[in-house]
Simulated assay, not measured.
Amino acid sequence: MIAIIGGGPAGIALAGALDRLGVAYDLFETHRLGATWRAAPPDLRVLSPWWTNVLSAREALRGDPFRKPQAGEYLAHLLRMADRLRGNLRESCKVEALNKDANGACWLDTQQGRFGPYSAAVLATGYFFAPLRPSPAPISDDSIQMLHASQISDYSQLEPFRVGPGPVVIVGRRVTAGQLLLELDKRGIACALSLRSPIEYRRHGRIAELRETAYFFWEELQARLRPGLKRPSYPVMDGGRTRELIDNAQVTLWPMIERIENGEVVFDDGRRLHASAVVLATGYHAMLDLLPASIPQDVFGTPLNRAFEVENFDNVFLLGFDNLYDHRSRYLRGIRFDAVRLARILASRATAA
């Protein structure tokens, strides 16, 4: 019996792969299945084509395979996949501790009691519920609302900022910052960007779209030719309208925030700005609180591991973390392949036992 901790794309993909191999499992989810996608604004758009992100080949043929789906559509896909699962699905069951006994078996302490023993436990806990904040964090007297992008579950939450004393200051330079900028612009809400380093943009236009489509086919081929290729991979800000707003100074650029006081944002260079709110689009870090703090991490922030198994913590595996198997492992388009790889490892161990 396997314990899967996390009911997002990684956990659901692994559960489906284990079903196909006849391996029993319990899946634990703190909230509801697909919680990350339930919490995202439903019209948030995925940056890569539908066919690269779905968890089954059959689903890839639902509609245009090259479209970039919105979060609501992808959530519906996840729930369809979850409906097919045959294991024990334990929603609203937060895992509070992961322990191992003298025989190496895994036990889970949860809000609903203790579960086990399991021959292996898989952390598929992802990133979304562990928002990353600037370091050092701005000092604030709470005179301006400051929130993380993960707290925005519907873009209508931005509407109250329309009547504020100044722009919404977005902290960040990657894809989430760009998406927020566009949503504010749609609503006629002024915004500014606070940056630590220059912005990189995705290419925009018809030729860029064709190149991007070709890239995903090339990436599939490259994964076969160079298995296990690891490299930094971060989605950059979209070009097009986003870049136009910045280049035309409709969105002003500022340095990093030092502090918030008396209704003003004070920047590193001493300048001040009256603002309606500060939104941190500063990304996320891996949710690894169930692992011992002593376990070292690699340059990508992923615990050291061999074939998904955490080093010096036998029978505990990882799925859905940055550069775990290759540079796609953190993303939807890589998770589905890693889930199959890991399921085969777990099935072979179960057979050997």
Score class of each variant (00 low, 15 high):
Cys93Asp: 07
Lys94Gly: 08
Val95Asn: 14
Leu98Asp: 00
Lys100Gly: 07
Lys100Met: 02
Ala102Arg: 04
Ala102Glu: 06
Ala102Asn: 08
Gly104Leu: 00
Gly104Ser: 03
Cys106Gln: 14
Asp109Val: 10
Gln111His: 03
Gln111Phe: 02
Gln112Glu: 12
Gly113His: 14
Arg114Phe: 10
Arg114Lys: 15
Gly116Tyr: 09
Gly116Trp: 03
Tyr118Val: 15
Tyr118Ile: 13
Ser119Asn: 12
Ala120Met: 07
Ala120Gln: 03
Ala121Tyr: 06
Val122Gln: 15
Ala124Gln: 09
Thr125Trp: 05
Gly126Ala: 10
Gly126Ile: 11
Gly126Phe: 03
Tyr127Ile: 13
Phe129Lys: 07
Leu132Asp: 13
Arg133Glu: 12
Arg133Met: 02
Pro134Gly: 01
Ala137Ser: 03
Ile139Pro: 00
Ser140Arg: 03
Asp141Gly: 08
Ser143Gly: 04
Ile144Asp: 00
Met146His: 02
Met146Gly: 05
Met146Ser: 11
His148Lys: 01
His148Arg: 02
Ala149Met: 03
Ser150Gly: 02
Ser150Met: 02
Ile152Lys: 11
Ile152Tyr: 05
Ile152Ser: 05
Ile152Asp: 07
Asp154Met: 05
Tyr155Met: 12
Tyr155Thr: 09
Gln157Ala: 14
Leu158Thr: 12
Glu159Cys: 05
Pro160His: 04
Phe161Asn: 12
Arg162Ala: 14
Val163His: 14
Val163Gly: 03
Val163Trp: 08
Val163Met: 06
Pro165Trp: 14
Gly166Lys: 04
Pro167Gly: 04
Val169Lys: 06
Val171Leu: 01
Val171Met: 04
Thr176Pro: 14
Thr176Cys: 15
Ala177Gln: 09
Ala177Met: 11
Gly178Asn: 11
Gln179Asp: 13
Leu180Glu: 04
Leu181Met: 14
Leu182Asp: 04
Glu183Phe: 10
Leu184Pro: 07
Leu184Thr: 02
Asp185Asn: 05
Arg187Tyr: 00
Arg187Ser: 07
Ile189Pro: 10
Ala190Gln: 14
Ala192Gln: 06
Ala192Asp: 12
Leu193Ala: 05
Leu193His: 09
Leu195Phe: 00
Arg196Tyr: 00
Arg196Phe: 00
Ser197Thr: 11
Pro198Ile: 13
Arg202His: 09
Arg202Ile: 03
Arg203Ala: 08
Arg203Leu: 10
